[in-house]
Amino acid sequence: MNDLRDLYQDMIFDHYRQPRNYGQLENANHKAEGYNPLCGDKVSLTLTLKDGVIHDLKFEGSGCAISTASASLMTEALKGKTAEEALSMLEDFKALVTGASVAKDMGKLTVLAGVQAFPQRVKCATLAWHTLQAALKSSTEPVTTE
């Protein structure tokens, strides 16, 4: 049960039940859809990028506790970051959830480190981040985790 508690920490439940930045940005200039065909998780991400900086972003979708909380935490972490910083955080985040060592302090995102013990759930945790990558490229094609 211990690794279950590590996975489902209070902050995860908090963001699952009350996701932050939930919805669609009206004036978004970048957007993308993400889909995990394995479990049916869907996420839609809208963001405003001006002069290389993410001014605002929102997500919408249906998913498990891990994918929803991860998306919510990501939107909080990325406001005010440059696109380059965001992509570098994506790499750090992938390292965090797959168990590779992370040099940087990832702030609240470290709450998702418990995913390490659940390789089947890495795709849930990274869905929003993969969608972010697509949104920054403004790819209109849905991304999937497959």
Partner: peptide
């Protein structure tokens, strides 16, 4: 209130 995937992980443990 509980996504199937979360139930699956819980049951797996």
């Amino acid at each position: 209130g509980v996504h199937p995937h979360d139930i699956g992980t819980f049951l797996d443990r």
